[in-house]
Amino acid sequence: MKMFNMFFDIKKEEQWLNEQLQKGYRCTNISGLGIYTFEKTDNRYVMRLDYQDYLPKKKFKEYKAIYDDFGWVHIVGYRLGGKQYWQKEEDNQNEIFSDRQSKGNYYKRLMGYSFWLGMLCLFFSYSIYKDSGLYLTEGLWSMKGSLFWKALLFETPFVLLRSLPVLMVVFFGSSFYRAYRKYSMLKEK
């Protein structure tokens, strides 16, 4: 079974994945374009998403070896940095973090991830809009009557497409904020 989905928030993605697994599936592959492949299974699986920055080859091997020893199967994840998808059969140890300090560090890494992606989108937005407004049709605002409405209707879908980077800034901004809230809660006590 293949499913398409798009997430700007790692915790939400993890939650959605586990909902699928609870229905009796097991994840076999995830492509970069948001296509998740599942397979029917009689066993119950859990999935946990870690985030790691760039790791040298040896470090990445060691990282994977330790998780592997604990029974986690690496579904996808690159050593150049990014989300690491781990899956294992459900038992009495289903978490990848067992203390406050490591959970705090995890949310700190998530903050960095959202922050840099948000910045990237902000940069894109800036380079798209700096020379023009959102609507590109010349003289659009001085058109009259039905011509104006037709032109406006025609162009609006393109405008929505062009404002995608700004929307993404907002999405990444809010996931940054959520990670920050969790991080500061763990740090405080």
Binding site: R48, E62, I66, F70, Q93, E95, I96, F97, S102, Y106
Partner: peptide, 12 residues
Amino acid sequence: VILAAGTLYGAI
């Protein structure tokens, strides 16, 4: 005290 994989990796 039962350490989880990510916690152990990070601590090491």
